[in-house]
Amino acid sequence: MPRMNDVGGQDGFGPVIEELDEPPFHADWEAHVMAMNRALIGQGVYNLDEFRDAVERTMSHESSYYENWFRAIQTLLKERGVV
């Protein structure tokens, strides 16, 4: 069964909405999530493929991009007994 993230060719996600003059991050916490993830991968707590896998198995279409990242990071840290 395809995972939640495998959306290519599916219908029903509505129109593409472009935000003009979009900033790289919409809030500081998003930048912190991005940086935290890079640091944890850099430290070898988990690797990039494990992170990608975690996003794909825990993501929700209702959550924003970095909310899904944060959920994946928390999941991996729990699974590895870090927190």
Partner: peptide, 19 residues
Amino acid sequence: LGPSPTWYKSTAYRSKVVS
């Protein structure tokens, strides 16, 4: 290209641009 825009990461774009 720098950080990607939200629309590039949206399910709307990813699902539809291929079909």
